[in-house]
């Protein structure tokens, strides 16, 4: 059958996590599950997610983001100068605790689901953000692959926590220079590895223009 180039089908990135996957992720974060064990669980989940996409007949496939805490917080595994912070950790540092808690409640976001990739040091890549994901996908499918990355605006907005970040960077813009540098390096690596599609996620753009309180800190 000829390759289609009209109405190509794909999805945006993440797939529902199984209980097994969540348990492995939490164990890995606590240090009770090794990276190798964690990856073995994730690999099985990704394998199934790819099989389902092929069965459905999608043209461009994603890995389902099974290895990721969230579409942006996962970078703490890959980027030096970051710390994965729970809501409890965050509360010690946000400027207005009551408002932050109220925001989570009214937006129906449970505290347990919030993890932030806070900037606590000079930012640089310890390892590629997604090259390993691309390589694993190549073993599973001959179809084109889409890799998702958090956008620079989302990362800058979420990573900056004044009480912790100002010790390292003078302002948001200085930190953003390093965020952009990291994403550029990653994009070039993915291009050189033959990745067909890289999607940057920037949900915060709508928040800035559509939320009535664009200055408030949310969980993204």
């Amino acid at each position: 059958m000829a390759t289609n180039n009209t109405f190509l089908t794909t999805q945006v990135g993440s797939w529902p996590r199984s209980k097994t996957m969540l348990k492995a992720l939490r164990g890995y974060q606590k240090g009770t599950v090794s990276r190798n064990e964690f990856n073995n669980v994730a690999n099985d989940e990704i394998r199934r997610t790819v099989e389902l996409q092929e069965k459905a007949g999608l043209d461009i496939l994603v890995d389902g983001e099974h290895r990721r805490e969230s579409f942006y917080a996962f970078i703490t595994d890959k980027v030096a100068g970051t710390a994965l912070m729970s809501l409890a950790d965050m509360l010690d540092y946000v400027e207005d605790k009551a408002a932050f808690e109220e925001m989570l409640r009214t937006m129906d976001m449970p505290a347990s689901a919030v993890k932030n990739p806070t900037c606590v040091g000079k930012l640089s890549r310890k390892e590629s953000l997604a090259l390993g994901d691309l390589r694993f996908m190549r073993n599973l499918t001959s179809k084109p692959v889409k890799i998702t990355l958090p956008g620079p605006y989302l990362l800058t907005r979420s990573m900056w926590v004044t009480a912790l970040t100002r010790k390292v960077y003078r302002n948001h813009k200085k930190m953003a220079d390093d965020v952009v540098k990291i994403l550029r390096e990653e994009l070039i690596d993915l291009r050189d590895a033959g990745c067909e599609f890289v999607q940057f996620d920037e949900p915060v753009l709508t928040e800035v223009v559509m939320s009535e309180e664009c200055e408030r800190r949310t969980f993204m």
Binding site: R191, F197, V198, D201, P203, L205
Partner: peptide
């Protein structure tokens, strides 16, 4: 390589 930008209005609830 194709570069895309995804925007949405939140997907947490």
């Amino acid at each position: 390589m194709r570069i895309g930008l995804h925007i949405c209005r939140g997907n947490w609830s």
